[in-house]
Design a protein around this nucleic acid. Structure first.
Lengths: 358, 358
DNA sequence: CGGTGGTTCTACAACGTTGCACACTAGCGG
DNA sequence: CCGCTAGTGTGCAACGTTGTAGAACCACCG
C-alpha cells in the first residue's frame, strides 16, 4: 500500500541505503544518482515513514507545549508564538491542555503522552513549590511562569515584581492616589498573584502612598467574569478609588465592563491598567493600557533553550533562568495614545545545579 | 538507557510478548502473571515506546488540526474544543498554523508533516473551489468552513446564510431600517463573506428593506483593526445607519471601538451584532450580541467523523455534510439581556461520491 | 481413555528506517 | 606501481513493538 524506500530503490536501481542517503542529504552522491532517486521519489509519491525513522533515531521531531487552556488569549498567543518559533527551526509542537488541574499537570510530566515528544515546555498553574520533586525529570524541560523556582530545569519567567511596581508607579505618576489592585490571592506566597501584588506594594511605597487593604480585590480565577465581579463588589461596597491595577488583562477587561455598568468614566474618573498585553487590549473601549511581559521573547527563548537541551542531550550544562525585558504600554485607559512608556530590563542567569542530566 | 519490554520481561520472568499482552489488555492472562508483570513495569518505570508501536501498528494516535492562527480567538476556542473532544476519545492533537497562506495550506495536505498523524481536520482560508483537486487525498480528512464544497471528504460547516439572514432580521425586528454590513468581499462567490452577505440581503428583502450599496463595508481581513477602519470610514463618509451586522466578532469589536471614538451610543443610536460568539463578546462594553454557529458541536462532530473514518479505513462510505444548529444571542449591543433569541436548525446530509477510499 | 475446547503463554517474523563498517573506484604524490 | 585519500555506493544489523501461529496445559464429556 504505502510506498517505502524499498520501492524507490528498486525503481531507481540503487540500494535502499542510497535512497536513505539522498533523503537525508548525505553529500557523497553523484548528481546523476541523486536525480534518479529524486525522480523515483516524485513518481511514486514517496514520503518518509516517520514512525520508522523515529524508532531508529530515537527522536520524534516533536516537542510538547503544556498550557492551562487555549481559550485564554494569553496562552493562545503564547502557543502561536511557540509554534511559529519551533516551526522556524523545523520542529513540530503538540499542545496539551491541563485545565490547571493538579492531576493533569502531573500527567504531563509522567503520563502516557510524555514519550511522544523529545521535550516539554511547561507552564504550570496548579503545581507549586511543594511539588518541585516532580520536576526532576530525565528529559529536556523548560519551565514557564512563576510557580516553580529552583527546579533542575531551564526556566523562562518575567520580572513580575519590577513590572507590577512600574505599573503602579505609572498610575501614581498620573496623579492617582487611591490605586486599587484586582486579582490578589490572600495568603499565597508564590505565583504571579503574590509577585505582582508585591510589586504593587513596592510601587505604593515608592510613591509615598499608604497601603489600604480595602483597595485589594481578591479574585481566585483570572477571568473576565471574576474581574467584573470583583470590581462590582468593590464599587457596591463604596470603596473610593481613582485607579485600578488589574493583575492580568482578562481581569482588567472584566473590570472595565463593571466600571461601565456603574457609569464610571475610564480614564476620567478611574484609570485602568492590565498585565499581559494581549491582542484584545488594543481594541477594548477604551483601549487598555497594559504591561507587555515580553511574550514573544519568552516563546522564542523557551524554544531555543529546549532545542539546545535536546541537541546536547546528556550534558550536565548549568541550568539557566531567563527574564525578558517588559514594557508598560500606555493607552486610552490611562489617558495615553498607545506608546511604550517604560521598560523594565530582564536578564539571564546561570544556575549551577549539581544534578546531572540523564 | 530506556527501559524496554525486554527488561520488563526478564524481571517478571515471562516472554516479551506476554508483557505486550499485559500492556494491551489481552484477556487470557493469569491474574498472578499479570500482577508480576505490572509490578515489574512499576519498579522499572517502563513506558511503551510509541515510535515502535506506531511502526508496527501503522497508527500514530495523533490527528492534525490545521487552522489559520491561534491568536484569532475563534480558532483558539475551536482548537480548545477539538483538543478536548479528541482527548476524551484517547487521541492527541497536533496543531498546524497556516497563516491563511496558499503555500502553507497546500503543504498541510501533502507536506512532510502529513505523515505524522492518522488524519486531518482542516479549516482552509486561502484555498478555494478551484483547488478542489488538492482535497482528493488518500487519508482521512474532515473539512471545516465554507470555502470548499463537494470535495471527497466529510465536511462540517455552518448554516451561514440562514444565520446571517436571522441576524439581519433580528436587527430589523428592533425597528432598525438602515442596517449596514461590515466585512463584505466584493466579487467573491464563495466563502463565509459571500454566504453571510447573501443572508444579509435575504434578510433585508424579507424585512422589506431596500439594499443600499452604501451600507456595505468591505474588509478583506476580518480583524479588529480592519473592523475599526471600515466602520470609521463609513462614519467619516457620512453614511447614515442605525444598525451594523459585522460578519464576525473581531470586526464587530473593532467597529464598536470606532463607534465609541465617534461618540455614537450603542445600542442607543446604532445596534450592533457580530458572528461567531467568541468568549470576548460577553465582556465587551457594551456586551456584544452575536451568532453562535455551534462551535462546540462543530469541534465534536469533526473529531467524531474523523475517528470514524480512521477506524473504517478503506471503506468507501458515503461522505457526510453536517451543519450544527446556530443561535442568535442577544446582548447589550442590541439592547437585550443576554439570551438566545433565535435558533436556526442544522442537519446532516449524506453525500454519495463515487470515489473510493484509499 | 481419546477427543474437544478453552485458557495461558511463547517463538518468530515483520514494520521501514538509519548507523556502521566496508568495498570499490579514481586520482595523485612519491 | 604502491599507498593514500576522497568520493560513491552497498549489506547487515539493529531500533522496540505487535500479529500470527501454535505449543502446552487443563478440565470435562462421552
Amino acid at each position: 500500500m504505502a510506498v517505502t524506500m524499498h520501492d524507490v530503490a528498486q525503481r531507481a536501481g540503487v540500494s535502499i541505503k542510497t535512497v536513505s542517503n539522498v533523503v537525508n542529504g548525505y553529500p557523497y552522491i553523484r548528481a546523476a544518482t541523486k536525480e534518479r532517486v529524486e525522480a523515483a521519489i516524485d513518481e511514486l509519491g514517496y514520503r518518509v515513514n516517520m514512525s520508522a525513522r523515529n524508532l531508529r533515531t530515537r527522536r520524534t521531531g516533536l516537542i510538547t507545549l503544556a498550557v492551562p487552556e487555549l481559550s485564554l488569549p494569553y496562552f493562545a498567543e503564547l502557543a502561536d508564538a511557540v509554534i511559529s518559533a519551533a516551526d522556524a527551526a523545523g520542529w513540530t509542537v503538540l499542545i496539551e491542555q491541563t485545565s490547571a488541574s493538579r492531576e493533569r499537570e502531573t500527567e504531563v510530566l509522567s503520563g502516557r503522552r510524555r514519550h511522544l515528544t523529545d521535550g516539554l515546555i511547561f507552564s504550570p498553574l496548579a503545581l507549586g513549590p511543594d511539588d518541585i520533586g516532580l520536576f526532576s525529570v530525565d528529559f529536556p524541560l523548560v519551565i514557564l511562569g512563576e510557580r516553580v523556582f529552583g527546579a533542575p530545569a531551564d526556566h523562562v519567567t518575567m520580572n513580575n515584581v519590577a513590572a507590577a511596581k512600574a505599573a503602579t508607579l505609572h498610575l501614581a505618576s498620573l496623579g492617582r492616589r487611591r490605586i486599587a489592585v484586582i486579582g490578589a490571592h490572600a495568603g499565597e506566597q508564590v505565583g504571579s498573584a503574590a509577585l505582582r501584588t508585591e510589586g504593587y506594594r513596592e510601587g505604593l511605597a515608592e510613591a509615598g502612598l499608604p497601603f489600604d487593604p480595602e483597595l485589594v480585590g481578591e479574585a481566585g480565577l483570572w477571568h473576565r467574569s471574576t474581574g467584573a465581579e470583583t470590581m462590582s463588589r468593590m464599587l457596591d461596597d463604596g470603596v473610593e478609588l481613582d485607579a485600578v491595577f488589574a493583575l492580568n488583562d482578562a481581569l482588567a477587561l472584566g473590570a472595565l465592563h463593571a466600571l461601565h455598568a456603574h457609569r464610571i468614566d475610564v480614564p476620567g474618573q478611574v484609570a485602568l491598567i492590565g498585565f499581559d498585553d494581549v491582542d484584545d487590549a488594543r481594541y477594548s473601549v477604551p483601549a487598555l493600557s497594559s504591561v507587555d511581559p515580553g511574550r514573544d521573547q519568552i516563546a522564542h527563548t523557551a524554544v531555543e533553550l529546549l532545542l539546545e537541551r535536546i541537541a546536547a542531550s546528556g550534558d550536565p550544562a548549568p541550568f539557566r533562568r531567563v527574564v525578558p525585558d517588559s514594557r508598560i504600554v500606555g493607552r486610552e485607559s490611562t489617558g495615553e495614545p498607545g506608546d511604550v512608556v517604560g521598560v523594565q530590563p530582564g536578564g539571564t542567569e546561570q544556575v549551577a545545579v549539581d544534578m546531572t542530566w540523564a
